[in-house]
Write a protein that binds this DNA or RNA. Structure first.
Length: 408
DNA sequence: GCAACCGGGGTCTGCCATTGCG
DNA sequence: CGCAATGGCAGACCCCGGTTGC
């Protein structure tokens, strides 16, 4: 318990955004804690009242009258009153049966408490039904557990609605683990890496699963990255790790195997020096570590083949990837479309190698721009292709100027 | 005033497999 | 055995604008 308070003190220090009321609710929740979870799981009917002490008035609705038919439950039948409850709430039972059928056989669940809890945080009835449909096990979490977990998330988020949004997006991220202790450890651990409150906020918003990982798993990834840095002759592993995480917020939900293999692949295939690889990883290269090993390989082979068929040398390929690693993100079809459109539109392949950022734009956008420029006989040879990778606003402004003052 | 350079922002779950527990 | 917890996987960009330098 001391540990939870420590986390809250720590993160609150970063945010200082808590009302006295919420603090009271929090500490109330924190002081009862996990012992009730045990009781919830052990199925002791007499403990129902303690199930959601956070929302006491609702406790009676917690499924009274369903615990009697133990016989049926043991034989693998669904809990009829639970099913009825869920149906009333608009939960998609078909989905529940497909995803976590075991939940429907449980004698004691907390669907009413969960619904009440989420509604009180600003979720709609539809959202609640959606959340339960997509992650049925959520109804096995006790009120105390929910309060505690919410409070931990609130130590990073400024408002309930931010959390509700994420739950609607990804119920699993919030509910998959019942280990609040591990969640606190993660918050402390990630904070100890020198990530500030803004970084943590971005991380939990973007890749909430990170916080459901066992803290040991996160630690492994951090250690892997630090090792990579040191092996490449870097002397600031902490900086390196922060740079990569801030570049790629998904890194901690990847497997170390994937990251390790991809880094090795890049180094071997491109023949990069240590310095080059360090630069790549801390820059745009951080993102491409996300790709599955096979996908990275396939995209690389494809890009290499395609570029060489257009007259590029191997060193052109390397140069392009160092300058703009996300080219490896582009699927074979998409890359072919983009390159062909550009070349057919009058752009020389060498110009693309020099300014690969044009590949950043969608095929549609590229085609549209090429067509518009063709109308005014824009000469890429003379003027370069910078115009293609400007923002929409700038592009349009430039077009207007060209219409008024056509090139000689 | 213009464009090149450069970095940043948004976005990413839902499913399956494995493990270990009761 | 059944279930909870948790690891891991597939899928594969687009756009904007501040700063800098001329």
């Amino acid at each position: 318990m001391a540990c939870i308070s420590a986390v809250l003190r720590f993160t609150r220090g970063l945010l200082n955004q808590r009302s006295p009321l919420q603090l009271a609710a929090c500490s109330a929740a924190l002081h009862s804690s996990t012992s009730n979870d045990e009781k919830l799981r052990s199925g002791a009917a007499s403990n129902d009242e303690k199930l959601c002490s956070g929302t006491a008035s609702n406790d009676e609705k917690l499924h009274s009258g369903t615990i009697c038919n133990d016989e049926k439950l043991r034989s693998g039948a669904e809990n009829a009153s639970l099913v009825e409850n869920l149906a009333t709430m608009g939960v998609d039972l078909k989905m529940v049966r497909r995803r976590q059928p075991g939940v429907l056989r449980k004698a004691i669940t907390n669907e009413r408490g969960l619904a009440y809890f989420l509604l009180s945080k600003g979720a709609s009835h539809e959202a609640v039904a959606g959340i339960i449909s997509r992650y049925p096990r959520s109804i096995t979490r006790s009120g105390v557990h929910l309060e505690e977990r919410w409070e931990l998330w609130r130590s990073i988020f400024k408002s309930n609605s931010e959390i509700v949004n994420i739950l609607e997006r990804s119920p699993e991220s919030f509910f998959r683990s019942s280990d609040n202790d591990n969640l606190q450890k993660n918050i402390l651990f990630l904070g100890s890496l020198g990530l500030n409150s803004k970084d943590l906020h971005r991380l939990l918003t973007t890749a909430p699963r990170t916080f459901s990982n066992r803290v040991e798993l996160n630690r492994q990834m951090i250690e892997l990255l630090q090792d990579v840095c040191i092996n490449l002759g870097g002397d600031q592993p902490e900086q390196f790790v922060k740079a990569i995480i801030s570049r790629n917020l998904y890194i901690l939900i990847r497997s170390t195997k994937r990251i390790k293999t991809n880094i090795a692949f890049l180094q071997e295939t491109l023949g990069l020096s240590n310095t080059e690889l360090m630069g790549l990883l801390q820059g745009h290269g951080a993102d491409i570590l996300d790709l599955s090993n096979e996908c990275l390989k396939r995209n690389f082979k494809n890009a290499e083949k395609k570029l060489m068929s257009l007259g590029c040398s191997r060193s052109d390929v390397k140069k392009m990837i160092i300058n703009y690693a996300p080219v490896l993100f582009v699927s074979p079809d998409n890359l072919k479309n983009k390159l062909d459109s550009l070349v057919e539109g009058g752009v020389h392949i060498k110009q693309i190698v020099e300014k690969p950022k044009v590949l950043d734009f969608s095929v549609e956008n590229i085609k549209r721009r090429l067509a518009e420029l063709q109308l005014i006989d824009y000469d890429f040879k003379k003027n370069g292709i910078g115009i293609l990778d400007s923002s929409r606003k700038r592009f349009e402004a430039k077009l207007v100027r060209l219409a008024v003052f056509p090139q000689e």
